[in-house]
């Protein structure tokens, strides 16, 4: 027990790099086990110190300081030349942004003036040949172009490769073609389609019950025929 205690002290003294106290020194001289322990541990610590010194005291190679000076020279040159490089980068960025924005404006669907005519033409081609749209009246197209809003964007033809295929019944197709053919002739319809939707105000809304006095039921075909006659 006494030796264990002394060996612990030996370790601590060696790790701290200190000097042995009188009592410890006396014990080591008297006890062969502790003396042997001390010699082993002292040798270990000497090896550790020698190893660490070998690791930490490498001379810098002769190329070190010239290398540092070379890198400083590069840094100084690049620092002095930062203004032209910076201005070149900005000019390049401006050119790229301008190019992209111009390209975007050209490719935008609403920038195409004949979108409505295209719709009418394509719808006509889809439907019956007889229902091909008449050439557009100049006055109505002018107003349509003027009010070229969100709805006309929805009507612009989509490339067939990008759009999913939709199966439409023959009668629906014909009705749609007929409807589109009427657009240039009826100004109200055209305006309703091309004007942007009115903004919704947050005002209070009054809801009252719908009152229907009389209901007249007509067959659908008759109603369509009446509408066509009008």
């Amino acid at each position: 027990m006494k030796c264990e205690k002394h060996q612990g002290k030996i370790l601590e003294t060696l790790a701290a790099g200190g000097v042995f106290s009188g009592e410890l020194s006396t014990h080591c001289q008297a006890c062969p086990a502790c003396r042997s322990f001390y010699e082993q541990q002292a040798s270990l610590f000497r090896s550790i110190d020698a190893g660490l010194r070998a690791m930490a005291n490498h001379e810098a190679p002769p190329s070190f300081l010239p290398g540092v000076r070379g890198r400083f020279a590069e840094l100084t040159v690049s620092r002095r030349a930062w203004v032209p490089r910076w201005s070149f980068s900005v000019a390049l960025a401006v050119v790229v942004i301008l190019g992209l924005s111009l390209g975007y404006v050209r490719l935008r669907p609403e920038s195409r003036p004949n979108s409505l005519e295209n719709v009418a033409a394509s719808a006509g081609a889809m439907g019956n040949r007889e229902l091909e749209p008449q050439p557009l009246i100049e006055s109505s197209t002018a107003s349509i172009r003027h009010h070229n809003g969100t709805r006309s964007r929805d009507l612009s033809p989509v490339p067939s490769t990008a759009a999913p295929e939709v199966i439409v019944l023959e009668e629906d197709r014909q009705a749609f073609a007929k409807f589109v053919a009427r657009i240039p002739r009826e100004r109200d319809v055209a305006l309703a389609l091309t004007q942007p939707a009115p903004s919704i105000s947050d005002g209070s809304v009054e809801i009252s019950l719908l009152q229907i006095e009389s209901v007249e039921v007509k067959p659908l075909e008759t109603a369509l025929a009446d509408g066509g006659a009008n």
Binding site: E12, L14, A15, G17, L44, F45, I48
Partner: peptide, 14 residues
Amino acid sequence: RLFLARKQLAEKLR
């Protein structure tokens, strides 16, 4: 720190 480090090293290398 040096004391603890040297002690740890000695333990690992013993």
